[in-house]
């Protein structure tokens, strides 16, 4: 019922086939798309720019957000770091969008029919709205949610999670991956609430050649275990529709197990990455969410190639 309501509000398949498809078809047959398809060097070059811009964007986001969640540059305040990273973030986002359009022109109808592409677009919209409204505002106001921050949060979360529900089904690994990533984040931002600092410091004082591989192995094993747990058998749910099956699956022991293991992986990450509790929970939440949204844009972008 709820899903039907959201579905009707946000548009449906007829809306897409009546309005969006002709636009894509026309673009596919237009001069710009023809030029990109004819120029053999164009797509690889745009791909290079896209990847370099993604790396720059990663640097700008990580530097600003890791400062808030803990393992970042502590010599500068979160507000100052965020301000310094702003031009890089904006520049990288513009380069990503332009090179992304260039790449898309080479395969217009393929991306139109690709669920990961639409997930990426929803993620990009959500990431842009969230970063430049909620995240910026909450960091600037030392953890306080202003009306702008709340509106940005509601819009970005609605768009992202609606697209996530619509474009991934319960057997699609992306859905599990996003859930695992979300629980990792929850573990990471809540870990400082109950972990004793002296014990954590003991672990962190291990030499780097032990701690880095050890940390990678433990977190890698936990994430793999979470994926294995998520491979549940849906035979009992097959008679339900996809969304009802999705809700029911949340209460399945293996999904609950996957969530718990992902959460533990988040806590272990907090120990391994040298995070310190210096910022309010709301600030850590928006920073982790911003990293999550941008990472999801990159993941679904990569997924386009496999779909």
């Amino acid at each position: 019922m709820l899903f039907d309501l959201i579905y009707q509000l946000a548009g449906n398949a007829d809306f897409f086939s009546d309005n969006i498809e002709p636009l894509f078809r026309a673009t596919d047959q237009g001069p710009a798309a023809r030029f990109v398809k004819d120029a053999w060097y164009f797509t690889p070059m745009a791909g290079c720019v896209h990847l370099v811009a993604l790396s720059l964007l990663g640097g700008a986001i990580l530097l600003a957000d890791l400062r808030v969640v803990g393992p970042g540059v502590t010599a500068r305040s979160p507000v100052e770091l965020n301000r310094k990273m702003h031009p890089f973030l904006v520049g990288a986002a513009i380069a990503l969008i332009i090179s992304g359009i260039m790449l898309g022109l080479g395969q217009v109808m393929r991306i139109y029919n690709s669920p990961p592409f639409w997930l990426k677009m929803a993620g990009l919209f959500s990431a842009l709205v969230f970063t430049f409204t909620t995240r910026d505002s909450v960091i600037r106001n030392n953890g306080k949610f202003t009306p702008v921050a709340i509106v940005g949060l509601v819009i970005s979360m609605l768009v992202f999670w609606y697209a996530w529900i619509e474009l991934t089904d319960w057997r699609f690994a992306a859905r599990q991956a996003y859930l695992i990533l979300m629980l990792l984040i929850v573990g990471f931002i809540t870990a400082p609430m109950y972990l004793k600092n002296e014990k954590v410091e003991k672990l962190r004082s291990l030499p780097m050649y032990i701690s880095v591989p050890g940390f990678l192995v433990v977190v890698g094993a936990l994430i793999s275990a979470a994926f294995l747990l998520a491979r549940i058998d849906y035979q009992y749910f097959h008679e339900l529709d996809l969304n009802a099956m999705g809700i029911a699956a949340f209460f399945h022991p293996s999904i609950l197990g996957m969530m718990l293991v992902s959460y533990i992986a988040g806590v272990i990450s907090w120990i391994g990455m040298g995070a310190v509790q210096t910022q309010p929970l709301s600030m850590r939440f928006v920073s982790m969410m911003s990293m999550f949204l941008w990472l999801s844009v990159a993941i679904s972008g990569r997924w386009i190639a496999f779909w």
Binding site: V52, L54, S55, L63, W303
Partner: peptide, 25 residues
């Protein structure tokens, strides 16, 4: 393997954001 191969390749690309992004800074 569709899932393992694509997951490893995606992880390789994602980690660029961490490695190259931080080294740029």
């Amino acid at each position: 393997s569709f899932l393992v191969w694509s997951a490893i390749e995606a992880t390789h690309i994602m980690t660029l954001m961490l490695f190259v992004g931080t080294i740029i800074m």
